[in-house]
Design a protein around this nucleic acid. Structure first.
Length: 104
DNA sequence: GGCGTGACTTGGA
DNA sequence: ATCCAAGCCACGC
């Protein structure tokens, strides 16, 4: 819970919390479930209030983990059995959206 | 009430 | 495959 009145924040956290283990959603998908295109706003909310929800289950459209959190997220993916694809970049891996993308 | 920022997206070169 | 530019929306100051 964030604060009374922050409907958007509450909604984002609710959607993220509703993602089952082993599945992920893109920022755009979360925004779409809320009936908005605020993919960036979702990222803002995650950055500020995402500490209390499974933030690692929210990834970018390209199958990449949240910027700057690749290593932490990877531990969770490995623990939950999320299919990953090793790549040669700063993140070191990529999420297989085709297999674990969750539709709310 | 207005402006800048950001854990984004999509499309084109 | 990569990089660049524009569009989008909500938040915080």
């Amino acid at each position: 819970m964030a604060r009374n009145g922050d409907a958007f924040v509450e909604a984002v956290l609710a959607v993220v919390a509703d993602i089952p283990p082993g599945r992920v959603m893109t920022y755009g998908d979360v925004a779409a479930v809320l009936g908005s295109r605020a993919a960036r706003a979702v990222g803002q909310v995650m950055a500020r209030y995402g500490h209390a929800v499974p933030w690692w289950r929210v990834v970018r459209a390209g199958g990449r983990p949240p910027a700057g959190h690749a290593e932490r997220a990877r531990e969770h993916y490995d623990a939950e059995g999320v299919p990953l694809r090793p790549v040669d970049d700063v993140d070191g891996y990529r999420i297989d959206l085709a297999a674990c993308r969750w539709r709310g």
